[in-house]
Amino acid sequence: MNASQRTPHRFTALETVKVPRVMRATFYMLLVGFLAGLAFLIYAPWLQTATGRGAVTTLNPNERKQDINALVPGRIEEWYVRDGSAVEKGDPIVRIADIDPQLIERLQAERQQVDLQLQAAQSALATARLDERRSRELFEAGLAARRDYEQAQIRIAEMEGRVAAAQATLNRADVSLSRQSVQIVRAPRDGFIQSLNAGDSATYINAGDVLATFVPDGAERVVEVFIDGRDVALVKRGDRARIMFEGWPAVQFSGWPSVAVGTFGGIVVAVDQSAQPSGRFRVLIAEDKSDAHAWPEERFVRFGAKAQAWVLLETVPVGYEIWRQLNNFPPELPPGEDAAQTR
């Protein structure tokens, strides 16, 4: 009998137990997934962004929504527009009438009287100059005293003062008459009337009261967003951004803007030097004309519409970006700025 026949087999039950194929497949799947996830975190690029929310506005204050004010006190006599009316530059908006219907006629009569006084003063001045010329000739010929010649010169100075006073009075009368005569408020530029804020002929208004709200046409749109102070130090003029407008269908991937759908390109044109009361900093983003997709028409994205912007910064691994977000660290500095800050 050999040795193998003399030694009994041990752990025969354990030898019959095998790892199930499902468990083995699960193990390999988890291992491959772990390695793939680790490789993804290390090697996959992620574009860092500074995010801000805001609204559509314009750079030029003349192109923003503005109030139409009354030029003179009085009452509303006639409206030429209504809510939503489109107007061109110079079109009448409202006519204002003074509470005294005879005011313009009295101002015109007063002006005529002042004009007559001016003409009389000018005639007197012309006469005084003739007298001064004759007095000078007689004085030079030795036929008149110096005192008469000096009195003639004084007379000219008095008449010149009266002419100047009459001219100033006439100018004031013209200003008063023009202010009361030009009582038609006109549109400052092309646009439309958003709302009328005054009543009818029973409503008395003062000079400067808001009559209507006017919105210009053809304004250059920009997006005004507010960015956290942690990230604003890395945002500068000329940085590119991606914008998502309210009500516009979009699928956004902030770290991979190339695969985003429904977002539009922008360029940072201004960054505030001081924070708003909320602690955030205002950043203005204009349309990127070089982008493949132009911004939606104004009828789709109007002034005041909400928007969200992502200012594009540096590219880092996905794992670093997750670690940064968990620790609430700021994004990476560009290489040139990092060296400059170190010095």
Rank of each mutant, 00 (worst) to 15 (best):
E15C: 04
I93R: 07
R136Q: 15
L14G: 07
Q252E: 07
V223S: 04
L14Q: 01
S178G: 11
A39R: 12
E337I: 01
R53Q: 10
L38W: 07
V235N: 05
A198E: 00
K65L: 08
T49L: 05
D217Q: 03
P101F: 01
E160M: 06
F303Q: 04
R162K: 06
E314R: 02
P73N: 12
R24I: 14
S201V: 02
A36Y: 00
R282N: 04
G319W: 09
A340N: 06
V22M: 14
N62L: 08
P334E: 14
E158F: 02
I96Y: 03
Q153N: 06
L47P: 13
F253Q: 13
D209T: 15
Q308S: 07
G90A: 05
G142K: 13
E297Y: 10
A3L: 08
R343K: 15
L118G: 15
A275V: 09
A305S: 15
N171Y: 03
N69Y: 12
Q276A: 05
Q113R: 01
Y204P: 06
G238T: 01
E105P: 01
I205Q: 06
L14D: 05
Q153V: 08
S135C: 08
P216Y: 00
V56W: 00
H293K: 13
E88H: 06
V81Q: 01
W248C: 09
Q341G: 01
V268K: 02
R111S: 01
A241E: 06
A126D: 14
D174M: 10
L118E: 10
R64N: 13
Y28L: 14
A164S: 12
G238K: 11
V182L: 15
S181P: 07
R179M: 12
Q112N: 07
A292S: 10
P73W: 03
T26W: 08
V225H: 00
V268Y: 05
Q167Y: 02
A198L: 07
A145C: 08
N69L: 11
P92G: 05
L71T: 13
G52P: 09
G54Q: 04
P330V: 00
A50N: 08
V81E: 00
L47K: 14
F226V: 08
